[in-house]
Simulated scan of single mutants.
Amino acid sequence: MLLRPLLDLLFPPLCHCCKTFIPNAGDLLICPACLEKITFLVTPLCPSCGTPFKTENGRDHLCGACLKHPPSHLSRSATLYAGPVQELIHRFKYGYKVHLGDPLGIMMSQALSPFREDAAPDLVVPVPLHRKRLRQRGFNQSQLIGEVLAKRWKLRIDTGSLCRERWTEPQTSLDAEQRRDNVKGAFAVRRPERLRGKRVLLVDDVCTTGSTLSACAEALEEAGAQAVSAVTVARSLPF
Protein backbone atom coordinates (compact mmCIF):
# COMPACT_ATOMS: atom_id res chain seq x y z
CA MET A 1 0.00 0.00 0.00
CA LEU A 2 2.87 2.38 0.76
CA LEU A 3 4.67 1.53 -2.48
CA ARG A 4 2.10 3.11 -4.81
CA PRO A 5 2.45 6.70 -3.48
CA LEU A 6 6.24 6.38 -3.64
CA LEU A 7 6.12 5.17 -7.25
CA ASP A 8 3.74 8.01 -8.14
CA LEU A 9 6.21 10.46 -6.63
CA LEU A 10 9.20 9.02 -8.49
CA PHE A 11 7.36 8.21 -11.74
CA PRO A 12 4.18 10.32 -11.75
CA PRO A 13 1.45 8.85 -14.00
CA LEU A 14 0.80 11.46 -16.68
CA CYS A 15 -1.94 11.57 -19.29
CA HIS A 16 -0.63 10.42 -22.66
CA CYS A 17 -2.56 13.26 -24.31
CA CYS A 18 -2.22 16.38 -22.16
CA LYS A 19 0.57 15.30 -19.76
CA THR A 20 -1.40 16.19 -16.63
CA PHE A 21 -0.99 14.10 -13.47
CA ILE A 22 -3.62 11.37 -13.06
CA PRO A 23 -4.24 10.24 -9.47
CA ASN A 24 -5.15 6.56 -9.18
CA ALA A 25 -4.31 6.09 -12.85
CA GLY A 26 -5.22 2.82 -14.49
CA ASP A 27 -3.57 1.09 -17.42
CA LEU A 28 -5.03 3.45 -20.02
CA LEU A 29 -3.29 6.60 -18.70
CA ILE A 30 -5.69 9.05 -20.33
CA CYS A 31 -7.25 11.63 -18.03
CA PRO A 32 -11.05 12.07 -17.75
CA ALA A 33 -10.92 15.45 -19.51
CA CYS A 34 -9.21 13.96 -22.56
CA LEU A 35 -11.47 10.92 -22.54
CA GLU A 36 -14.46 13.24 -22.84
CA LYS A 37 -12.96 14.61 -26.07
CA ILE A 38 -12.79 11.13 -27.62
CA THR A 39 -15.79 10.03 -29.71
CA PHE A 40 -16.36 6.32 -29.18
CA LEU A 41 -18.36 4.79 -32.03
CA VAL A 42 -21.70 3.28 -31.08
CA THR A 43 -25.11 2.68 -32.68
CA PRO A 44 -26.35 3.83 -35.15
CA LEU A 45 -23.71 2.54 -37.54
CA CYS A 46 -23.30 0.32 -40.57
CA PRO A 47 -23.42 -3.32 -39.36
CA SER A 48 -20.99 -4.29 -42.11
CA CYS A 49 -18.14 -1.76 -42.01
CA GLY A 50 -18.94 0.08 -38.78
CA THR A 51 -19.30 3.55 -40.34
CA PRO A 52 -21.24 5.74 -37.87
CA PHE A 53 -24.32 7.74 -38.87
CA LYS A 54 -25.15 11.23 -37.61
CA THR A 55 -28.67 10.36 -36.48
CA GLU A 56 -29.15 9.72 -32.78
CA ASN A 57 -30.99 6.74 -31.33
CA GLY A 58 -31.50 5.37 -34.84
CA ARG A 59 -31.24 1.87 -36.19
CA ASP A 60 -28.16 0.30 -37.72
CA HIS A 61 -28.35 0.02 -41.51
CA LEU A 62 -25.97 -0.58 -44.40
CA CYS A 63 -24.08 2.46 -45.65
CA GLY A 64 -23.93 3.44 -49.32
CA ALA A 65 -20.39 2.13 -49.77
CA CYS A 66 -21.29 -1.34 -48.48
CA LEU A 67 -24.41 -1.42 -50.64
CA LYS A 68 -22.25 -0.63 -53.68
CA HIS A 69 -19.27 -2.83 -52.77
CA PRO A 70 -20.39 -5.40 -50.15
CA PRO A 71 -17.35 -6.47 -48.11
CA SER A 72 -16.85 -10.12 -47.25
CA HIS A 73 -15.94 -9.29 -43.67
CA LEU A 74 -17.35 -7.30 -40.77
CA SER A 75 -15.31 -4.51 -39.23
CA ARG A 76 -15.54 -2.11 -36.31
CA SER A 77 -13.53 0.89 -35.09
CA ALA A 78 -13.26 1.95 -31.48
CA THR A 79 -13.26 5.72 -32.01
CA LEU A 80 -13.54 8.53 -34.51
CA TYR A 81 -10.22 9.64 -36.00
CA ALA A 82 -10.21 13.08 -34.41
CA GLY A 83 -9.06 14.98 -31.33
CA PRO A 84 -6.82 13.18 -28.84
CA VAL A 85 -6.95 9.86 -30.72
CA GLN A 86 -5.76 11.44 -33.96
CA GLU A 87 -2.91 13.12 -32.09
CA LEU A 88 -1.92 9.87 -30.34
CA ILE A 89 -1.89 7.90 -33.59
CA HIS A 90 0.12 10.60 -35.37
CA ARG A 91 2.73 10.68 -32.58
CA PHE A 92 2.75 6.88 -32.52
CA LYS A 93 3.34 6.39 -36.26
CA TYR A 94 5.33 9.45 -37.30
CA GLY A 95 6.84 10.59 -34.01
CA TYR A 96 8.17 7.09 -33.25
CA LYS A 97 6.49 7.04 -29.81
CA VAL A 98 6.09 3.27 -29.84
CA HIS A 99 4.91 3.18 -26.20
CA LEU A 100 1.63 4.74 -27.38
CA GLY A 101 0.68 1.40 -28.87
CA ASP A 102 -0.27 0.38 -25.33
CA PRO A 103 -3.07 2.92 -24.66
CA LEU A 104 -4.36 2.55 -28.23
CA GLY A 105 -4.54 -1.23 -27.87
CA ILE A 106 -6.11 -0.99 -24.41
CA MET A 107 -8.71 1.46 -25.71
CA MET A 108 -9.62 -0.98 -28.48
CA SER A 109 -9.85 -3.93 -26.12
CA GLN A 110 -12.27 -2.05 -23.88
CA ALA A 111 -14.45 -0.45 -26.55
CA LEU A 112 -14.66 -3.41 -28.94
CA SER A 113 -15.10 -6.26 -26.47
CA PRO A 114 -18.72 -6.94 -27.55
CA PHE A 115 -17.66 -7.16 -31.21
CA ARG A 116 -14.87 -9.54 -30.27
CA GLU A 117 -17.37 -11.81 -28.52
CA ASP A 118 -19.61 -11.86 -31.59
CA ALA A 119 -16.71 -12.44 -34.01
CA ALA A 120 -15.24 -15.20 -31.79
CA PRO A 121 -11.78 -15.07 -33.45
CA ASP A 122 -9.14 -17.77 -33.07
CA LEU A 123 -6.18 -15.49 -33.73
CA VAL A 124 -5.07 -11.92 -34.41
CA VAL A 125 -3.39 -10.96 -37.71
CA PRO A 126 -2.00 -7.41 -37.99
CA VAL A 127 -2.12 -5.67 -41.37
CA PRO A 128 1.48 -6.03 -42.63
CA LEU A 129 3.78 -3.32 -43.98
CA HIS A 130 5.84 -3.71 -47.12
CA ARG A 131 9.46 -4.48 -46.22
CA LYS A 132 10.52 -1.10 -47.66
CA ARG A 133 8.07 0.78 -45.42
CA LEU A 134 9.08 -1.37 -42.46
CA ARG A 135 12.74 -0.41 -42.97
CA GLN A 136 11.77 3.26 -43.20
CA ARG A 137 9.59 3.32 -40.09
CA GLY A 138 11.39 0.68 -38.06
CA PHE A 139 8.20 -0.90 -36.71
CA ASN A 140 4.74 -1.99 -37.78
CA GLN A 141 2.21 0.05 -35.82
CA SER A 142 -0.55 -2.50 -36.46
CA GLN A 143 1.58 -5.29 -35.02
CA LEU A 144 2.32 -3.34 -31.82
CA ILE A 145 -1.37 -2.60 -31.33
CA GLY A 146 -2.25 -6.20 -32.22
CA GLU A 147 0.14 -7.54 -29.60
CA VAL A 148 -1.62 -5.53 -26.89
CA LEU A 149 -5.02 -6.63 -28.14
CA ALA A 150 -4.01 -10.30 -28.35
CA LYS A 151 -2.63 -10.24 -24.81
CA ARG A 152 -5.71 -8.63 -23.30
CA TRP A 153 -8.13 -10.84 -25.24
CA LYS A 154 -6.00 -13.95 -24.69
CA LEU A 155 -5.65 -14.71 -28.39
CA ARG A 156 -2.74 -16.01 -30.45
CA ILE A 157 -1.11 -13.51 -32.81
CA ASP A 158 0.27 -14.45 -36.24
CA THR A 159 2.70 -11.92 -37.72
CA GLY A 160 4.30 -14.04 -40.42
CA SER A 161 1.56 -15.55 -42.57
CA LEU A 162 0.00 -12.48 -44.19
CA CYS A 163 2.46 -10.34 -46.15
CA ARG A 164 2.40 -7.29 -48.39
CA GLU A 165 4.02 -8.47 -51.61
CA ARG A 166 3.68 -5.31 -53.64
CA TRP A 167 4.71 -1.76 -52.76
CA THR A 168 1.72 0.60 -52.68
CA GLU A 169 1.61 4.37 -52.56
CA PRO A 170 0.28 5.97 -49.34
CA GLN A 171 -3.50 5.94 -49.32
CA THR A 172 -3.96 9.38 -47.75
CA SER A 173 -4.13 11.35 -51.03
CA LEU A 174 -6.33 8.86 -52.93
CA ASP A 175 -10.10 8.72 -53.31
CA ALA A 176 -12.14 5.59 -52.59
CA GLU A 177 -11.84 4.04 -56.06
CA GLN A 178 -8.12 4.80 -56.26
CA ARG A 179 -7.57 3.23 -52.84
CA ARG A 180 -9.21 -0.01 -53.96
CA ASP A 181 -7.08 -0.12 -57.11
CA ASN A 182 -3.93 0.78 -55.17
CA VAL A 183 -4.09 -2.23 -52.82
CA LYS A 184 -5.73 -4.75 -55.14
CA GLY A 185 -3.62 -7.91 -55.12
CA ALA A 186 -1.03 -6.34 -52.82
CA PHE A 187 -1.38 -8.97 -50.08
CA ALA A 188 -0.69 -12.69 -50.01
CA VAL A 189 -0.49 -15.54 -47.49
CA ARG A 190 2.83 -17.35 -47.10
CA ARG A 191 1.72 -20.07 -44.71
CA PRO A 192 -1.92 -20.94 -45.48
CA GLU A 193 -1.80 -24.02 -43.25
CA ARG A 194 -1.64 -21.70 -40.21
CA LEU A 195 -4.86 -19.94 -41.18
CA ARG A 196 -6.90 -22.66 -42.83
CA GLY A 197 -10.20 -23.14 -40.99
CA LYS A 198 -9.43 -20.33 -38.53
CA ARG A 199 -11.51 -17.32 -37.59
CA VAL A 200 -9.13 -14.41 -38.16
CA LEU A 201 -9.25 -10.95 -36.60
CA LEU A 202 -7.44 -8.33 -38.70
CA VAL A 203 -5.97 -5.37 -36.79
CA ASP A 204 -5.03 -1.94 -38.14
CA ASP A 205 -4.70 1.56 -36.75
CA VAL A 206 -7.07 3.62 -38.93
CA CYS A 207 -9.86 2.71 -41.36
CA THR A 208 -10.97 5.21 -44.00
CA THR A 209 -12.62 3.43 -46.91
CA GLY A 210 -11.78 -0.09 -45.74
CA SER A 211 -9.95 -0.91 -48.97
CA THR A 212 -6.80 -2.16 -47.21
CA LEU A 213 -8.80 -4.35 -44.85
CA SER A 214 -10.82 -5.73 -47.77
CA ALA A 215 -7.66 -6.60 -49.73
CA CYS A 216 -6.23 -8.37 -46.68
CA ALA A 217 -9.49 -10.21 -46.02
CA GLU A 218 -9.61 -11.40 -49.63
CA ALA A 219 -6.11 -12.88 -49.36
CA LEU A 220 -6.95 -14.57 -46.04
CA GLU A 221 -10.19 -16.04 -47.38
CA GLU A 222 -8.46 -17.35 -50.50
CA ALA A 223 -5.93 -19.03 -48.18
CA GLY A 224 -8.75 -20.91 -46.44
CA ALA A 225 -9.64 -18.78 -43.41
CA GLN A 226 -13.08 -19.78 -42.15
CA ALA A 227 -14.09 -16.18 -41.39
CA VAL A 228 -12.43 -12.77 -41.28
CA SER A 229 -13.39 -9.77 -39.18
CA ALA A 230 -11.47 -6.55 -38.64
CA VAL A 231 -10.92 -3.95 -35.92
CA THR A 232 -9.15 -0.60 -35.95
CA VAL A 233 -8.41 2.02 -33.34
CA ALA A 234 -10.13 4.77 -35.30
CA ARG A 235 -12.39 5.50 -38.23
CA SER A 236 -11.66 8.41 -40.54
CA LEU A 237 -14.58 10.02 -42.38
CA PRO A 238 -13.19 12.30 -45.11
CA PHE A 239 -15.49 11.11 -47.88
Rank of each mutant, 00 (worst) to 15 (best):
S48W: 09
A111T: 00
S229E: 07
L62S: 01
L7I: 09
T172R: 09
N57P: 01
R137H: 04
V189G: 07
K93P: 09
C46T: 10
R135D: 10
P128L: 06
C17H: 03
A119S: 15
Y96G: 03
A186G: 02
A111L: 00
Q110M: 05
S77E: 00
A33M: 05
S214K: 03
T208V: 07
A176L: 05
Q110K: 07
A234I: 12
L213S: 02
R76P: 13
L28V: 10
V127A: 01
L123T: 05
L74F: 04
V183P: 09
A120C: 06
R194N: 12
F115D: 06
V233S: 07
G185P: 05
R190M: 12
L155R: 15
Q136H: 04
I38P: 00
Q141E: 12
F40H: 11
A225D: 11
G210H: 02
F53A: 00
K19W: 14
S48C: 11
A186L: 03
V125E: 10
N140C: 06
L129P: 14
E222C: 14
L28Y: 08
F53R: 03
S75W: 03
S72Y: 10
S142H: 08
L129Y: 13
L29T: 07
L80F: 02
R156S: 14
E218I: 14
E117H: 15
P23W: 15
Q136V: 03
Q86R: 11
R152H: 15
L74C: 08
M108D: 00
L155G: 14
T232Q: 10
V85Q: 13
A215R: 08
T209K: 04
V206N: 04
K154E: 06
G224C: 08
H73I: 15
A176E: 06
G26R: 11
F53H: 01
P170T: 10
W153E: 14
Y81H: 03
L134G: 01
V98L: 13
D175V: 02
T172C: 04
L6N: 00
T209M: 04
S77Y: 02
E193H: 03
F53T: 01
P238L: 03
C216T: 00
S173E: 15
C46P: 08
R190V: 09
G224S: 03
V124K: 11
L67Q: 12
D181K: 07
A219V: 13
F21M: 01
V124E: 10
L3Y: 02
F21K: 02
L10S: 11
M108R: 06
H73D: 05
P5S: 03
T208P: 09
R135F: 15
N57C: 02
P52K: 11
A120K: 07
A65T: 08
G95H: 14
A230D: 14
I30C: 01
V183K: 05
G210W: 00
G105S: 10
L134I: 00
N182S: 13
P32N: 02
A223G: 08
Q141S: 11
L213C: 01
L28E: 06
R180H: 15
C207A: 08
P114G: 02
A25Y: 08
E222M: 15
C18I: 03
K132L: 15
L10C: 13
K132G: 13
V200C: 06
T39M: 01
D122N: 00
S214D: 09
R76F: 13
L3M: 05
E56N: 13
L134A: 01
P52M: 11
G185C: 06
L80E: 06
C216P: 01
K37F: 06
F40E: 08
